[in-house]
Amino acid sequence: MEFGPFLLLAVMEGLVGAAVLALTASGLSLVFGVMRVVNVAHGEFFMLGAVAAWFVSQWVPGPPGLAFAVALVACPLLVAGLAALADGLVLKRLAYEPEATIIATIGLLYILQQAALSLYGPEARPVPPPFEARLQLPWFGWSGYKLFVIGAAGAVLAGLWLLLSRSRIGLVMRATQVDRETATAFGIDVDRVYAATFALGAGLAAIAAVLIVPIQQAHYLMGGDPLLLSFIVVVIGGLGSLRGTLVAALLIGLSDGVISTFFEPTLAKILATLLVALVLVFRPQGLFGARA
């Protein structure tokens, strides 16, 4: 293949990764931004979404499109419900003290991972895509489903942006983010806002997982990479800044393909983890976020 089409293919594949990453990372970013909670179990919510999608594909009869539609609605709701439960049972009782919540979410990570292993098993299982379509370009053919993933992720992110910037819920969330005490004084039920935020963050990860699972198989250990990548994106985009997170997700998702052609994946990961550490040390406001 010539360079031009090759680059086009790399960009298109990169966009799929970027779209899913943007969804996952915006969930992590939202939770950190509003609640100041570093959710180490975020990758496990992603994994749960994928595993749940597999169960739905087994239980719902009829065409794969129907099962997928059910999964796309039911799995994020299920995961969001679990997250709200975890918030009420654990995080709230810790008064959202930063270090204690990190320890607690590590515990949650172990429990969720073990639950998936016990109930779902150690196998990696595929989930059929909702439709088979090929996009035929002059140089290569491409899965129409991947195009759908990009579109769907874009739509969800646009919805999220509208929710946060235009709706009352978004206003309440932003008010709580700025100052918890004042929000309480203005009659905002901060406990409910936090539970909703934690559920929304987990739900976003689950949506991302349902979208990606027809391309990538469901496995109980699949949460590690999205967690690491989301961390990288959130840190580089600037902790708690949703716009920075989206820009960083696009950049990192797109460059992921390019980087992995130059470096081995393991080496790329080593460099990425070191980059996160150094950004946190020397530029805690992120590489391109304005100062918080």
Binding site: V90, L94, A104, I106, G107, Y110, I111, Q113, Q114, S118
Partner: peptide, 13 residues
């Protein structure tokens, strides 16, 4: 692993 996770959460709580 369940035990590890549960102990962590119970301890911080």
């Amino acid at each position: 692993q369940f035990v590890v996770g549960a102990v962590l959460i119970l301890l911080v709580l």
